[in-house]
């Protein structure tokens, strides 16, 4: 039996140093470290993220719980309870996500800044990453989602019809069957296979202002011609490190998002998930205007150590857990 860890001692030290640097960064900025439950009564409704389900056997029957896929909902309940700026470093789980850049169990850093714009939060993400990645070249790229699609394909992703996107996928991606793909998944395919590979390696790229089909829990802004989602993603080279929002604080819209996501689950023939009523109740009380972001720390550690596979930076990845 191969019981031994996949990491070198140097990688283990790099992880400890990274965690130390992150905690020092937030201590200095007066952002409070918090904990929230890993096992919740409610799951993530996002149709593209599967929670791992856990069953607790009880004498009066069994109780279904979900391992959290991110601490987003309970951290927003803390915001609604006037916690102020908060961060959390926690293990999260996403069913079925295995590969060179994915382990179903991974470490996520998530933080919320009250009163921040998402632009200001992007700056802070850059500041944090340049501390944990000291060799990072200065001057990240900032690109709107729209400019990436316009420059590469002359397609405006905010108004493109699914037919236009399907034509683009057929022309540029080998053998992808577009049957059953919605607007979001078509855009994901084009971004993942045609646009991300051209991101400058070893540089940070921030992509911001997403189509509303990609909004998740981000606030929507009306522009002159169409609405855009105030969401951003940060990449190092071609590796996606994190995802952030100008948080949607309108309680009605939050309720609508969760129910729309469950509807999308039905459309994809996926099991629906119990919507987080506690989060929705907190939203009704009022979540303060804030921006939040989540960063995959194992991916960051891959960048620090230069390892090509996430399996080499986790002591005991999925197959050895």
């Amino acid at each position: 039996m191969d019981w031994s860890p996949n990491t070198t001692q140097q990688t283990r030290k790099s992880r400890a140093q990274m965690l130390h640097d992150i905690r020092a960064f937030f201590l200095q900025r007066d952002v409070l470290e918090v904990e929230t439950p890993a096992l919740s009564q409610f799951g993530n409704t996002d149709p593209f993220i599967e929670s791992i389900q856990c069953i607790q056997q009880k004498s009066e029957g069994s109780e279904l719980r979900y391992l959290h896929t991110s601490p987003e909902y309970p951290m927003k309940r803390l915001l609604a309870a006037d916690s102020g700026d908060i961060y959390q470093i926690s293990k999260v789980w996403r069913a079925g996500e295995s590969g060179n850049k994915h382990n179903p169990e991974f470490t996520l850093l998530e933080w919320y800044r009250v009163g921040f714009s998402y632009q200001k939060l992007m700056q802070e993400v850059e500041e944090l990453l340049s501390i944990v990645l000291p060799d990072l070249p200065k001057k990240p790229q900032f690109k709107t989602y729209e400019s990436l699609f316009l420059e590469k394909f002359n397609i405006n992703p905010h108004i493109a019809t699914n037919e236009q996107l399907i034509d683009c996928v057929r022309e540029h991606i080998d053998h992808l069957d577009t049957e059953g793909m919605n607007n979001q998944s078509l855009l994901d395919a084009i971004l993942s296979f045609c646009i991300e590979p051209e991101f400058e390696s070893s540089h940070l790229t921030f992509v911001y202002d997403y189509p509303v089909s990609q909004s998740a829990l981000a606030q929507i802004r009306q522009t002159e011609h169409y609405p855009v989602a105030e969401r951003f993603e940060v990449y190092l080279g071609q590796s996606e490190l994190g995802n952030g929002y100008q948080e949607e604080v309108d309680s009605k819209r939050n309720k609508q998002i969760l129910s729309d996501e469950n509807q999308a689950r039905k459309d994809f023939n996926l099991e629906t998930v119990k919507e987080d009523r506690l989060f929705l109740a907190a939203a009704e009380k009022g979540i303060p205007a804030s921006a939040g972001v989540a960063i995959g720390l194992d991916r960051v550690l891959m960048c620090i150590t230069g390892e090509k596979s996430i399996q080499k930076v986790i002591n005991f990845p999925w197959d050895k857990a």
Binding site: F48, I49, N100, M181, A189, S192, F193, N243, G296
Partner: peptide, 14 residues
């Protein structure tokens, strides 16, 4: 076989 998936999006096998 490469698993490709945006954090918030459609997963693929390339």
């Amino acid at each position: 076989n490469e698993f490709v998936k945006p954090g918030k999006g459609q997963a693929f096998s390339r």
